[in-house]
Simulated scan of single mutants.
Amino acid sequence: MRRNARMRRGVTAAALLIAAAVGGSLVAGCSTGGGSPDGRDEQQSRPPGDGGRTSAPPTGPVLAVKIDNVPAARPQTGLEQADVIYAEQVEGGLSRLMAVFATKLPKVVGPVRSARESDLELLRQFDEPTLAFSGAQHKLLPLIDKAPLTPEPPEKNTGAYFRGSGRAAPHNLYLRPRLLMASPPGAAALTTGFRFGAAPAGGTPQTTRTVRFPSARFTFTWSAGQHRWRVTMDGTPTVTTDGARVAPATVVVQYVRVRASRFHDVLGSNSPYSETVGSGKADVLRDGRVFHVDWRRASAEDGTRFTAADGRPMTFARGQVWVVLARA
């Protein structure tokens, strides 16, 4: 369950004061001009914690970044350092990603693209998260402003964004996360409801899994040597601009209701809404096996609980988690 609003506001305010104290030196040390996206973070990578059960209190909000995912936007930058990546369906049956950062911040992440209505429900599970995005349907913008999050589009924080060279707009907008927050908040800020630990008994051996959207597909292939699921999107192996292969420790195929939202894109196509509050079925891929589980999220403020067939909480492998929101 999330902390109460007063506590969250206190933590967020403290984080903002810290950020303000060091923000001047960060801005002075970074160029906001164009250039190629680059940079693997120097911080040592560590897996996400268990919803705060064994971690220090968070020092601020998570950073959620909307990531372009059409072929022209690939390879992306910074994906391998996200703690959680959500894949959702957008207009035309295509896909878009939301990368959530809590335990580390990459130097650069992107390309950054627009937000959707269903993002607001998905982000309610976090304590006043920071949302980095580039634009939205104009009737959606007031809802984003009223949501319990901190919106950080380019027009609000021009210094944190830049246009990269080598590809055309709109697939070349990048973010320097450390110009939005001084440091990552820590694993306890991941109030997703996920549990991490040893694999439960059972499951069925599986080394590859493909999830299809109407105009996109994700394939996850188990690598016993790497002990990770290698990601392939639309038939092409997923790597970042620095050559890192994107390979989460756990993949969740969460079956949800995908319905029409109230909004349309500039071409008049309806924006799909993936409902993440409620209950349903899911497949959890970990350790070269698939586990058929139930998911439940009682309210938007709650994280999602995954329950194995024996009634026990499903545990994830420590490391990055991908959640693909597939049509039920």
Results as ranks from 00 to 15, higher is better:
Arg113Ser: 06
Arg113Cys: 03
Ser114Pro: 02
Ser114Lys: 03
Ser114Glu: 10
Glu117Trp: 02
Glu117Gln: 01
Glu117Thr: 00
Asp119Ile: 08
Leu120Thr: 10
Leu122His: 04
Arg124Phe: 00
Gln125Trp: 01
Phe126Tyr: 15
Phe126Gln: 10
Asp127Met: 12
Pro129Tyr: 04
Pro129Ala: 01
Thr130Lys: 07
Thr130Cys: 08
Leu131Lys: 08
Leu131Arg: 03
Ala132Trp: 12
Phe133Ser: 10
Phe133Thr: 13
Phe133Leu: 14
Ser134Arg: 04
Gly135Ile: 07
Ala136His: 02
Ala136Thr: 00
Gln137Trp: 08
Leu140Thr: 12
Leu143Lys: 15
Leu143Arg: 15
Ile144Arg: 14
Asp145Cys: 13
Lys146Ala: 15
Leu149Gly: 05
Thr150Ala: 14
Thr150Glu: 14
Pro151Ile: 01
Pro153Val: 07
Glu155Pro: 03
Glu155Cys: 07
Lys156Asp: 09
Asn157Met: 08
Ala160Cys: 04
Tyr161Trp: 10
Phe162Ala: 05
Arg163Pro: 06
Gly164His: 11
Gly166His: 13
Arg167Trp: 07
Arg167Val: 07
Arg167Gly: 09
Ala169Gly: 13
Ala169Arg: 12
Pro170Leu: 03
Pro170Asp: 03
Leu173Val: 12
Tyr174Asn: 00
Leu175Asp: 00
Arg176Val: 12
Pro177Met: 11
Arg178Asn: 10
Leu179Ser: 09
Leu180Cys: 03
Leu180Met: 03
Leu180Thr: 00
Met181Ser: 02
Ala182Gln: 05
Pro185Asp: 05
Gly186Ser: 05
Gly186Phe: 02
Ala189Ser: 03
Gly193Ala: 03
Gly193Met: 03
Phe196Glu: 02
Ala198Gln: 07
Gly202Arg: 08
Gly203Arg: 11
Pro205His: 13
Gln206Ser: 11
Thr207Leu: 13
Thr208Leu: 01
Thr210Gln: 14
Val211Ile: 15
Phe213Thr: 12
Pro214Gly: 14
Ser215Leu: 03
Ser215Arg: 09
Ala216His: 12
Ala216Arg: 11
Ala216Gln: 06
Phe218Gly: 05
Phe218Arg: 08
Thr219Pro: 02
Thr219Val: 09
Thr221Val: 07
Thr221Asn: 05
Trp222Phe: 14
Ser223Met: 05
Ser223Asn: 06
Ala224Gly: 14
Gly225Pro: 01
Arg228Asn: 05
Arg230Gln: 15
